[in-house]
């Protein structure tokens, strides 16, 4: 999109784009271990029914997906395949890490063959803790991801900035912080803004530690 990569979109257009993006997400499932079954229950079962959130499971290939749900234990043997699949996905892309294993190693924190956290190999947007998390927790993770997308500055995401929220962009333009997030002025509006994207990073469902 020419408008996006040139710089800023007009605000109403950004809002429209973000809204439509956040309600038409195709999710690619990496069911790796036990959490995959709970993810299957969230995505495939009539009781939880993820489609009412505007999320469509089961794309044919990672090239069609908007976000990925890594659920389960990533082992050192599997990690290259996970990374490769992540690189096949088109930008803009997001990742949800589901379950303690994908967050930090979980019950296998001292195992010789388990990657302690999928965030070592791909940038994770939302952490869903639990072993396994209930399907409801995964649904909340998806809602949080949608909130994040709604508040995103698409140009910043395009450039690959670390922080992509609209508030951050406004603060940068007002000269309060620089692009790396260093505070320039005394006050900065992010901490005072009560909107949901002012949450501290990383975003964790339930707000606790990521284990």
């Amino acid at each position: 999109m020419g408008l996006v990569d040139k710089g800023r979109l007009p605000a109403p257009l950004t809002k429209l784009f973000n809204m439509s993006r956040s309600y038409s997400l195709w999710v690619y499932q990496w069911g790796l271990a036990c959490c995959a079954i709970e993810m299957g229950a969230a995505f495939g079962s009539p009781r939880y029914d993820v489609m009412r959130l505007g999320v469509i499971p089961l794309p044919a290939s990672p090239r069609q997906a908007d976000f990925v749900c890594v659920s389960g234990t990533v082992t050192d043997k599997m990690a290259p395949a996970v990374k490769r699949l992540w690189e096949q996905m088109p930008e803009p892309k997001y990742a949800i890490s589901m379950g303690s294993c994908a967050n930090c190693g979980g019950p296998y924190w001292d195992s010789y063959s388990v990657t302690k956290g999928v965030d070592q190999i791909l940038p994770v947007d939302i952490y869903v803790p639990g072993c396994p998390p209930r399907p409801e927790a995964l649904l909340e993770g998806i809602v949080l991801l949608q909130q994040r997308i709604k508040n995103e500055d698409m140009a910043a995401k395009w450039r690959g900035d670390e922080f992509t929220t609209l508030q951050r962009t406004r603060a940068v333009e007002a000269g309060e912080v620089d692009r790396d997030g260093e505070l320039i002025a005394e006050t900065h509006s992010i901490s005072e803004d009560p909107t949901p994207d002012a949450r501290p990073e990383p975003i964790v469902v339930g707000g606790g530690p990521i284990e």
Binding site: L32, A33, C34, I37, T73, T75, M78, P107, D110, Y112
Partner: peptide, 28 residues
């Protein structure tokens, strides 16, 4: 081996009541 999580080695550093937490997850 893509899902090898090292159960047999891990049981050696857990106590008996803790092992059930691990072996739960074999056939999930």
């Amino acid at each position: 081996g893509y899902m090898h999580r090292g159960y047999e080695k891990l049981t050696e550093v857990r106590t008996f009541p803790q092992v059930t937490t691990l072996v739960n997850r074999i056939d999930w």
